[in-house]
Design a protein around this nucleic acid. Structure first.
Length: 297
DNA sequence: TTGCAGGGGTCAA
DNA sequence: TTGACCCCTGCA
């Protein structure tokens, strides 16, 4: 990995297995926006705004420097992880092989735990455009503004700020009945009933138990936070889509979420999270032709 | 144009 | 195991 800095941007050579659309549109994150006039994305994380683009195997990150890249973005985009090896290891499974060929450039981001937690609480019984809107409204109203290229971007407010918001204020952002979950999550964090940072150092099962102590956090949301913030790659977030596609491709009948979890644990082990992302993205984008793809090859 | 079903889950009964 | 839940969206 060769790194060059010039004009407020960092260029990294020799990037493999990275596609911005695959990574930002596979459902793991909600705050990256594609620019209208090119194929780059602009987003906000760790209180920084960057614009990111790929030119063949050159990754171009604007509005940053080498120190920040090493400290934040290298791990945020999981650039030290070799995804070719991961895909090769999963290749024995025909379905994942097809799925990972389609979503070849997915990288699992290392997102900020607090924002990730609230984002996935909001995601419950909801859909992506609306989730994005809600998170954006909360940020615009209660986060801090950062200007980049003549546009204002907003950080996601911390638990102290969120906790002070009234139910009416959260409802006005579109949270609906989830407002009480959000306030409760903020309280748990502020009062130290749960220490998010600690979760990265404990086994997935313990982390899941901790997260599920929060009112409004069930197994699916807990697994999303474990995977997308804490690099717990052995979890397999099981939502309706995953269940639908697993039922269709692996079991041919409706099985329980628990069964799917155990199946994934046995089959994919420490790579379950990657398998889940490939499968999820592939099935969302190809639902109508999935039979032809999988069963006729 | 209007009306209605349903959504990337969770809680409570 | 099942229904309720905010409210936006897609589709008759």
């Amino acid at each position: 990995m060769d790194i060059i800095y010039r004009n407020n941007k960092v260029i990294i050579n020799g990037i493999k297995d990275f596609n911005l659309t695959h990574t930002f549109e596979c459902g793991q994150c909600f705050r990256w926006f594609k620019e209208y006039n090119d194929d780059t994305y602009t987003g906000i994380a760790y209180n920084k705004v960057i614009n990111i683009g790929l030119d063949n195997d050159n990754l171009i990150i604007k509005n940053t420097n080498i120190e920040e890249f090493n400290k934040i973005w290298k791990s945020y985009f999981d650039l030290d992880n070799n995804y070719s090896i991961i895909k090769n290891k999963l290749n024995y499974d025909k379905i994942i092989r097809i799925a990972s060929k389609f979503g070849w450039g997915i990288r699992i981001l290392k997102q900020e735990p607090w924002e990730c937690l609230i984002s996935f609480i909001i995601s419950a019984n909801n859909f992506i455009p609306r989730i994005r809107n809600i998170i954006n409204r909360i940020s615009v109203l209660y986060g801090e503004a950062i200007s980049y290229n003549g546009t204002l971007y907003h950080t996601f407010p911390g638990p102290d700020i969120i906790y002070k918001l009234s139910p009416e204020q959260l409802i006005a952002c579109g949270c609906g009945y989830r407002h009480k979950y959000i306030t409760e999550a903020a309280r748990m964090v502020l009062e130290g009933h749960i220490t998010l940072e600690k979760i990265k150092d404990i086994p997935s099962n313990d982390g899941r138990t901790d997260l599920m102590k929060i009112y409004g956090v069930g197994p699916k949301i807990a697994d999303c936070v474990l995977l997308f913030s804490f690099q717990k790659y052995n979890v397999f977030p099981t939502d309706v889509w995953i269940r639908k596609v697993m039922n269709k491709l692996y079991f041919g009948k409706d099985v329980t979420n628990n069964y799917i979890q155990e199946f994934a644990q046995d089959k994919y082990g420490n790579l379950a999270g990657f398998a889940q992302q490939y499968l999820y993205y592939y099935s969302r984008e190809n639902w109508d032709k999935i039979d032809k793809d999988i069963f006729n090859k």
